[in-house]
Design a protein around this nucleic acid. Sequence first.
DNA 1: GCCAACGTTGGC
DNA 2: GCCAACGTTGGC
Length: 190
Amino acid sequence: MVAQYKCIRTYVRVCLAGLRGGRRRGQACPPGVKLGYGEASRRTRRPVGNAAMAYWLFKSEPATWSWDQQVAAGAAGTFWNGVRNHLAKKQLMAMQVGEQGFFYHSNEGKAVVGLVEVIRPYYPDHTDETGRFGMVDVRAVKALPRPVTLDAIKADPVLAEMVLVNNSRLSVQPVTEAEWARVCALGGLG
DNA sequence: GCCAACGTTGGC
DNA sequence: GCCAACGTTGGC
């Protein structure tokens, strides 16, 4: 295995490049190779042993981009472009691959209709001429059996602190674990 | 760096 | 379609 590389240094460099992400090379680093400490933190940019997952909410006007379109995009997902607000950008930048978010229909519908998963971390938004904003890729995970309406969210004391209630204009929002569980329950999941 | 004017979002 | 809330812009 190692012999295919000119030397062990080249081999380790290739492995590290794979770990840093960017494009997947299709091959994990073979076992038995010590990459040294810091591997996990390089992978996740989070302290080792802290696997806390964050939750999010993505707003979209169905006339612009609907849940049905998101579902149709399938496992390959789509980029979530168009964010032009620095607070929303901050949320996008904090997202980790594998984290989930609500898909919320604003204007028409006004309800959480499904769950999405982040499948690519923050990278530049090619539709932003200023070059200041970025985006992530998301894919549809599943629809809520029962959409959770804004009215239902506002009526629920557990959800009184949701950003959706208090700063409804923010297009990408953080969601607490308790809020996540509650909305999922109201939607007929879990 | 303040702040008025303006534009946009999104609930109603 | 109205308008409150919020963010951005640009003159000073």
